[in-house]
């Protein structure tokens, strides 16, 4: 078994060094702030594109912070990060196409099933 020699403890986990507590507290605080802002979007009743872009911005910001720091993705090697993120393109494609689909369905229903729609 000597050629499958074990690695000494020091080298075993090269990327898993612990991080300073400050970074966690910072991210924690940021998450509260962002959640508060996204709540404010509803409080002030923003409408239309502004509302949507704000909602999505805060959502992705929060998700990004959680993934990057709490889930340590920021410190992971790109091999793992890429494996995790590329499949999301399939989801993105699915979302875009279903958005087109619901518009079409809604149009069909409004046009053919509601009085005045066919006019």
């Amino acid at each position: 078994m000597d050629d499958t020699n074990q690695i000494n403890e020091k080298d075993k986990k090269p990327v898993e060094s612990t991080h300073k507590i400050g970074i966690y507290l910072w991210i924690w605080g940021l998450l509260f702030v962002l959640s508060f802002f996204s709540y404010m979007v509803d409080w002030y009743q923003f409408q239309g594109m502004l509302r949507w872009s704000l909602i999505l911005f805060f959502m992705f910001a929060k998700a990004g912070l959680i993934m990057a720091f709490f889930m340590h993705l920021f410190w992971e090697r790109y091999a793992l990060v890429n494996v995790l993120l590329w499949p999301m393109t399939a989801i993105a494609c699915f979302v875009f196409l279903m958005a087109a689909e619901f518009e079409y369905t809604l149009f069909s229903r409004m046009f053919y099933f509601f009085v005045g729609g066919g006019a």
Partner: peptide, 17 residues
């Protein structure tokens, strides 16, 4: 993952798909 609706050409989905 990007081809699924070719099973649905005549399903009545959005024709532009």
């Amino acid at each position: 993952f990007f081809v699924w609706a070719h099973h649905m050409y005549v399903s009545g989905m959005n024709p532009w798909f």
